[in-house]
């Protein structure tokens, strides 16, 4: 283990910012399925989403892709390969699965003695994982 840098520490993973084709639709999807609150929308079409503003001012920021943006295959491309959020109540986990199923979104669920997780992709193919303690 190398020498630690001095003067700062990383407290936590903060937020993901994504560029998508239809930010209003993507933000609405995450509000309705995951239960995020939308704290603000700026004129540039930026949707700031969080579950608790006091604890984390934003967890997901959805922005419009610029003209000419090309789709990527997030299954193989170098770079972003997924983001993971913890659900801190078990009811929330089941609620998200029900909402994804109701929308016909494909969801992969893994469960073991310690952890339950669900994975899905949004309209732009971006991968997400949500998990909770079993």
């Amino acid at each position: 283990m190398g020498k630690k840098p001095e003067g700062f520490k990383v407290r936590k993973a903060g937020h993901l910012v994504i560029r998508v084709k239809d930010p209003a639709a993507t933000a609405a999807f995450f509000q309705e399925v995951v239960g995020f609150n939308r704290k603000g929308v700026l004129q540039r079409g930026m949707h700031f989403l969080t579950s608790d503003f006091e604890d984390n001012h934003h967890m997901l920021l959805v922005r419009p892709a610029k003209d000419g943006a090309e789709e990527r295959d997030f299954r193989s491309a170098i770079g972003f390969a997924g983001v993971t959020y913890e659900i801190t109540d078990a009811d929330g986990f089941d609620r998200i699965i029900d909402r994804l199923n109701a929308r016909g979104v494909g969801v992969l669920v893994d469960e073991d003695d310690t952890r339950r997780s669900l994975r899905f992709r949004d309209e732009d193919g971006l991968p997400y994982e949500f998990w909770c303690k079993a």
Binding site: R11, G14, I18, R19, K66, A69, F74, F80
Partner: peptide
């Protein structure tokens, strides 16, 4: 390892713009 790299602002792209870590 020679595949396409992330496109960075201000160029157009779909996907992650950035990921943030909070310092203390």
């Amino acid at each position: 390892p020679n595949g396409s790299r992330p496109v960075v602002e201000p160029q157009p792209f779909i996907g992650m713009e950035h990921f943030a870590f909070e310092l203390e």
